[in-house]
Amino acid sequence: MRLPNWLHKLASPPHFYRIAARIEPWMLWSGLAAIAVGAFGGLLLAPPDYQQGDAYRIIYFHVPAAYLAMQLYALMAIGSAIGLIWRIKLAYAIAAAAAPVGLAFTGLALATGMLWGKPMWGAYWSWGDARLTSVLVMFFLYLGYMLLHASLEERSTADRAAGILAVVGVVNLPIIKFSVEWWSSLHQGPTISRLAAPAITWDMLWPLLVMVAGAVLFSMAVTLTRARAEVLLRERGARWVQDAVAADA
């Protein structure tokens, strides 16, 4: 199987570097603007929930973080898979760039999830909650990817080894989620009073959507910046890098 031509062209490091540099500021500023609007809407304009009061407002941070934790893991795994199959080094660079960003959002999702858990469950953590537990596992998979990548001296080896781990992990994640769900469905301990998700109204929903969009744009901008730095580092011997750095200076 071959990649389409336009993708091959995009995958050439100098081309990617130039395109990424052009779209990056747009993503960054529109992302930050959307986050500001979403936060304003979510924290001030949206009405309080009739059951949870103002506590529910943490979803404006929790949901985007959890969503990005997954999306960035997918990006990391897909990038690694493309690198492994088609030997495109740019794909590895993007995977390696996405990992710390994903780890940060996963940490944010865990922290906000715990804060939300206190009013919901009466405890910061519930092992019976499949989502929380699988996000925790995902946190460790991100960590494993980054530590493995950092431990192997040779960059091409590190890319491939960590890439295999990312791919094995992405196959395993649904199984982990399913297992924890099954586990908690049979749990006979003290019953957890989980509130059924109430129907969300439009004035609660729109800030959430804006928040998610803003977080996606912001994380893409950060990932692109990191990917550009990775590319520069990896290609530092090449002529175009010296030209690009000279032009920036």
């Binding site: 998979l141 494993g144 493995l148 431990s151 781990l165 992990g169 395993n172 982990i176 297992s179 924890v180």
Partner: peptide, 30 residues
């Protein structure tokens, strides 16, 4: 898989454990 990934590392045992344990969770639970 994890041992193959970490075989070249001098002190790879800790990393090996960190890679295996999260993935082993479903087996343990069932």
């Amino acid at each position: 898989v994890a041992a193959a990934l970490t075989a070249g590392l001098r002190r790879g045992v800790g990393l090996l454990a960190l890679l295996v344990l999260p993935l082993a969770l479903p087996i343990l639970l069932f």
